[in-house]
Nucleic acid binder design. Structure first.
Length: 459
RNA sequence: GGCGCGAUGGCAGAGUGGUCAUGCAGGGGACUGCAACUCCCCGUACAGCGGUUCGAUUCCGCUUCGUGCCUCCA
């Protein structure tokens, strides 16, 4: 019952050994809230929700922290464009993010800290770095002194020389070293800012996660995660800040022991990103597809692999979701028995670096067994296995209440037509019965004949 | 330019040194008046070239192609 995963820091698959098996601590970098979340943002949320579900099924206590970045230059731009206060933007999109993720079956993090509520912590951490000679103030900025960190580059596997060679941005004149990054920057009067020992300003991006992770989890903690594009520079810089502040710069694991990174969602092979403009908003997609279908789609590929978003992916996910719903209908009056064959279970697939594609294939076999059980006596066990699988995969199986949206008048009309159709069928007047079916389809109603009679459903 | 990842049947996507992935799509059949659902059957997939091996899709090397990070990005 041990978890294995690919640790980005060691670049190999390892067995997860908790720092404290009685309390697992996980941090994952959350979104910057200035717009609707796109599918790529959702992948991060679903992947780490999946990790946390697995962890919570194995350990007595798990604390999952995932932040909201609510101070950032892009937010300031968005607020200015909309002509509203920053808070209005950040509150709106934080709420929408949480609602959208909930519709995908993502449980809220145990703690969801906001950057603006930790400015003091960031200032304090920045001061410590200055005091210890790892940071310096210059022209209202405070910069992290990268050459002062002997382990810098441990996560991303880059030497400083490589970065300089590849530097595509002009180096600010106040930087001592081109690789130095901002911990604190000055704000003009019309920009959001806080008072600090270095004047009125705002934090750089990386410092917030160092501050919030330490504040809420303590150091070191077990697992730190996020999207693969955060590995460098964001995560690299977090390690530098936290380890240097704690005089443990030579040991990158003194911040977080393991690092997990999810791959990207792509569209026609290219990364879905805001800059390319090829992104789809979760908010829009859930208008057309149930949340669980999106979640299944996001779990179709292994979390470290790219996931190509397409209509066919959604179609396939939708089919699986229908099969799950059908299985629940079949099992409606069966008592479940929780007695899982662990070796071949969905959970055991997840233990191996969160192999969701394998888990889904096992779910499919399970569904087949439910549709055609060797003996009916097997059903209670199968139901138990299904419930366990669905629970750990976070798939909300909701009975379609879509028929509720049909008006009472229409229901009467439908029932009348169905009664007429049964009569026609009894008289072997199949021409008439097919006509009735066509009429219903025109009304947007699909029917199906079962042993128990005819059921109908809004399309 | 530096560092990294990937290449599996029409599509998606696991996995393995030597017998099965799985799903979607497609074809055939069973069931049903017909549909739908469900069930059964059907495709000699592992980029190319070398090497290691009794044996490689799986290990090693090279080539080609694709893609990611190095700039805000999950």
């Amino acid at each position: 019952m041990t978890i294995k995963f690919y640790n980005s820091l060691s670049r190999q698959k390892e067995e997860f050994v908790p720092l404290d098996a009685d309390h697992i601590k996980i941090y994952a970098c959350g979104p910057t809230v200035y717009n609707y979340a796109h599918i790529g943002n959702a992948r991060m949320a679903v992947v780490f929700d999946q990790w946390v579900r697995l962890m919570k099924s194995l350990y007595p206590k798990v604390t999952y922290v995932s932040n909201i970045t609510d101070v950032e230059d892009k937010i300031m731009v968005a607020a200015k464009e909309a002509g509203v206060p920053i808070l209005e933007i950040t509150e709106k999109y934080t709420r929408i993010y949480n609602e959208d993720m909930a519709s995908l079956g993502v449980n809220a993090p145990d703690i969801q800290p906001k950057a603006t509520e930790h400015i003091d912590d960031m200032i304090a951490l920045t001061q410590v770095l200055i005091d210890k000679g790892h940071a310096y103030a210059a022209e209202g900025h405070v910069l992290f002194d990268v050459p002062s960190d002997p382990s810098y580059g441990a996560l991303s596997g880059r030497s400083r020389d490589e970065q300089i060679a590849g530097a595509r941005v002009e180096v600010a004149p106040y930087k001592r070293d081109p690789a130095d990054f901002v911990l604190w920057k000055p704000s003009s009067d019309d920009q959001v800012g806080w008072d600090s020992p270095w004047g009125r300003g705002r934090p750089g991006w990386h410092i917030e996660c160092s501050a919030m992770a330490e504040q809420h989890l303590g150091l070191p903690f077990d697992i730190h995660g996020g999207g693969a594009d955060l590995k460098f520079p964001h995560h690299e810089n977090e390690i530098a800040q936290s380890c240097c502040a704690n005089d443990t710069a030579t040991d990158p694991t003194s911040f977080a022991k393991y690092w997990l990174h999810n791959g990207f969602v792509t569209v026609e092979g290219e990364k879905m990103s805001k800059s390319l403009g090829n992104f789809l908003l979760v908010h829009d997609v859930i208008e057309k597809f149930p949340g669980p279908v999106l979640r299944i789609a996001l779990l179709m590929a292994h979390y470290r692999q790219p996931l190509d978003w397409s209509d066919q992916l959604l179609h396939q996910s939708g089919k699986l979701y229908e099969r799950i719903q059908r299985a629940y209908e079949i099992l409606e009056n069966v008592d479940s028995v929780r007695n899982v064959d662990f070796k071949e279970s969905v959970t055991s697939a997840l233990l191996d670096d969160l192999n969701t594609p394998l888990a889904i294939s096992r779910l499919n076999s399970l569904l087949s067994s439910i549709f055609s059980p060797e003996v009916d006596e097997a059903l209670p066990n199968l139901k138990g296995m299904l419930e366990k699988a669905i629970e750990i995969l976070g798939i909300d199986v909701v009975k379609d209440n879509i028929n509720d949206s049909v008006s009472d008048d229409d229901v009467i009309k439908i029932e009348t037509l169905l009664a007429e159709r049964i009569e026609a069928k009894d008289n072997k007047d199949y021409k008439r019965s097919d006509e009735i079916r066509d009429e219903l389809i025109e009304m947007g109603i699909a029917i199906k004949d079962t042993r128990e009679g005819t059921s109908w459903e809004k399309i």
